[in-house]
Nucleic acid binder design. Structure first.
Lengths: 343, 343
DNA sequence: ATTAGCACTCAGACAGGGTGAGTGCTAACA
DNA sequence: TGTTAGCACTCACCCTGTCTGAGTGCTAAT
C-alpha cells in the first residue's frame, strides 16, 4: 500500500470509479479506454487494472465481468482525486428557497432540512437534532393540571421545548407554582441544561434554602423534571436508497429496512461526528453500522456561534456522487447554522 | 350474490380461507377434502369450488393452481363465519404489562401502543394521536425569548402540549406577557381548542376590550398561536409487513414502502374511522388506499368518557389472522381508553 | 348427489446451447 | 521497456425444450 500510484494509474482509477458511479455496472477495459482523453488500448488498461486489483482498489465479481471499485478505492478517490466542486448557483438558490416559507421553529427547520437533503441529493437525508441537554435553559415553568399533577415546561435558548408530566407528592397551589418558577428561573436561567441538575443538588445544600420549605420543594420538583431525553433524529427519503440498483433484491432491501428502523445505530454514528468540525465522510465499513454494507454517510455539523448544535447529512450507496453531495451537505449545514444562529 | 350458501359450502369456504391464511399458497381440492371433519372427496370439493368461484368468492391465479379467496370472501368470512374469540388471558396480561413501566405522558403511551400492536399482532401497528384541536384548552402561556420573539405554549386538558414561536410586531415586557396570559386563560380556559379562535374573534368586538390596548394586543397575539397542526401518527413494525410472502418481490415492496412514506393517506383513512364507534374492518380495496392492494386495516377508536380521542389499529395483508387480531385491537383500544380517561 | 377416473393445463425446476462482454497471456512492435 | 494486437478462455445471462407435479374440468359409474 505504500506503493505510489503513477499519474496514469490514478486517471484510470478515477475513470473507473466515475463510470461505476453513474452506471452501477462493473466497468470493463474497453469502456475505460474509449473514455475521456485516455488514448490507450484496452489491453494496456487491462494491465493497469490488474495492478490496481492487486493493490486492493478493485475487485471483479467474477472472471469475465468488469472491475468494481472497493471501499479503499472510494476512500482514495475522495481523499486524493476528487476536486470537490463549488455547489452551483441554481442549486444553491433552490436550497435557499426551501426555507423561505418555513417558520423559524427549530423542529420545523430541521424536518424540512432532512427532506431537502433527500430531495436534492436523491439519497436519504438525516438530521440529528440538538441534544436538549446541550442547550441553554431559558425558562422553566410549572402548570397545574389538576390534583397533584403538574406539567413542567423547559424552554431552551434555541426555542426547543421539552415538557414532562410529574405526579408530585403534595398538592401545590397555583400561586406556589408561580413562586417556585420564579425562584428556579432566577437560579437556573442561562445554565447549560446538562449542568442544571448539579446546580440543583448544590443549591439543596444551601442553608438558606433549608429554611424555606417552598424552595426546597421547588428544587425537589425541578430535579424530577430534568430527564435525559432520547436523541431526536429526522430521516427522509428512504425509498431513494431502495431505488439504487444494488439493493434491488428482496433480502438486501429488508435488511436495510430493518436497519433503518433501528434508529439508535444511526444516532450513535452521528453522535460520533458531533465532536469534529465540518464535513466528514464514512465509506462502507467505516460507518461501523451493521447490516448496512454498501452504504456511505456524509455528514457535517451545524453550529450556533462556536458551539456545535447537531449533525446533518446524507446516506447513500458507497457508489455515491461524492462530488455533488459533499458540497450540498456542506452548504446546507452552513445555511442551517445561519438560520439558527440568532436563536 | 343473492344466492344463499348451503351450510356445506360455507364450511368449505371457511376451510379454504383458513388454510390460505396460514399457508399463503393457493389451496387445492385435495387439501380441503382431507381437512377438518369434512368427509368429502376432492371431486365433490371441486364442484363446490367451481360454484364459489362463479359467485365471486374465489379465484385461481392460473388453471392448474388451487383457489385463492377474494376480498369478497374475506368480507363474508368476517361478517358471517368468523367467531371472534375472546382474547386469551396470557395475551391480555402481556399487553397490560407493556404499559406498567411507561409514564403517563400521552405521547409516550401512544408510541408504546403502536409498538405493542405491531409486536403482538405480528403485523404493523398504527395509532392516530388525538387532534390537538379536538382537545380542551387548559392553559395558555407566553414566554419571552428575547427581542420580539415570544414562545406561546398551549397545554391541553389531556397533557398534550403545543408550542409555537411567534415574532410579535411590538416588544412586550415580561410583566405584560404574564398579564396577557392571565387574561387569556380567564377567557379561554375550558374551551375546546377548535372553538378558541372564534371565541377570540368574538371577544375582539367586545367594547371593554377595545379600550384596553393590552387586552386587544393579547387577543391579536393569541390569534397567531392557534394554528391547525398536522395530525400525528405513530406507525411501527413496517418490516412485519415486508416479511409476508405475498410481498416478497422488489416492485411490490417498494410500492408499499413508498405508500407508507406518505402518511397522509393513512391519516385520511383513520380520520374516517373516528366518527364510528368500536372496531372497524377494511378489507383490500375497501381501504381506498392507493398502492396498498392486498392490505387490510383493522381499527378501533379510543375514548375518554364519551368523546372519541383517536384511532388505533393494525395493518396487515388481506390474508390476515382476523380472528386473533380483532380482539387484540379491541382490547388495546379499551385499555388505552382506560389509561387516558382521567386526564 | 357423489365419486372415481382420465385427459388436460400450466408453473416451476432443470439442462443444454448460444451469445457477448470481458479477461489473461503471449508475442510482436516502437 | 512499455504498449499493443491477437487469441483462447471464462462465465453470467438468455433462450429453449423437456419433465414433473399439482390441480383442474368433464364424464360415466355408483
Amino acid at each position: 500500500m505504500g506503493e505510489e500510484l503513477s499519474e496514469r494509474n490514478k486517471r484510470i482509477l478515477e475513470a473507473i470509479i466515475e463510470d461505476y458511479i453513474v452506471t452501477a455496472e462493473p466497468v470493463g477495459s474497453r469502456a475505460v479506454a474509449r473514455r475521456h482523453g485516455l488514448t490507450l488500448s484496452p489491453a494496456t488498461v487491462r494491465n493497469v487494472m490488474a495492478d490496481l486489483e492487486e493493490m486492493g482498489f478493485l475487485t471483479s465479481p467474477h472472471t469475465s465481468a468488469g472491475r468494481v471499485p472497493t471501499d479503499q478505492a472510494y476512500r482514495f478517490y475522495v481523499d486524493s482525486l476528487l476536486a470537490v466542486g463549488r455547489i452551483d448557483k441554481a442549486e444553491r438558490e433552490r436550497i435557499r428557497k426551501r426555507y423561505s416559507g418555513a417558520g423559524r421553529d427549530i423542529g420545523a427547520v430541521l424536518h424540512e432540512t432532512s427532506r431537502l437533503l433527500s430531495s436534492v441529493s436523491h439519497y436519504m437525508g438525516i438530521v440529528l437534532a440538538p441534544r436538549f441537554s446541550a442547550t441553554i435553559l431559558r425558562h422553566i415553568e410549572f402548570v397545574k393540571l389538576g390534583g397533584r399533577r403538574i406539567l413542567a415546561i423547559l424552554v431552551a435558548q434555541n426555542g426547543a421545548v421539552q415538557n414532562r408530566l410529574i405526579e408530585s407528592e403534595e398538592e401545590f397551589s397555583g400561586a406556589d407554582l408561580v413562586r417556585m418558577s420564579n425562584y428556579l428561573n432566577e437560579l437556573l436561567q442561562g445554565l447549560p441544561i446538562a449542568q442544571v441538575r448539579s446546580r440543583i443538588l448544590e443549591e439543596m445544600q444551601n442553608e438558606k434554602v433549608l429554611y424555606d420549605t417552598l424552595f426546597s420543594r421547588a428544587l425537589r420538583l425541578s430535579e424530577q423534571t430534568i430527564v435525559e431525553s432520547g436523541a431526536q433524529i429526522f430521516m427522509e427519503g428512504q425509498t431513494n436508497i431502495l431505488d439504487q440498483p444494488e439493493f434491488a433484491d428482496v433480502g438486501r432491501m429488508k435488511e436495510i429496512f430493518r436497519a433503518f428502523e433501528e434508529k439508535n445505530q444511526l444516532v450513535d454514528l452521528l453522535d460520533r461526528c458531533i465532536s469534529a468540525q465540518g464535513v466528514q465522510i464514512f465509506i462502507g465499513a467505516e460507518t461501523h453500522l451493521s447490516h448496512m454494507e454498501g452504504l456511505s454517510v456524509i455528514t457535517s455539523t451545524y453550529v450556533s456561534g462556536k458551539n456545535t448544535l447537531g449533525v446533518l447529512g446524507v446516506i447513500g450507496p458507497t457508489r455515491m456522487g461524492y462530488g455533488k453531495v459533499i458540497p450540498i451537505v456542506d452548504y446546507t449545514a452552513r445555511l442551517v447554522s445561519k438560520l439558527l444562529e440568532d436563536e
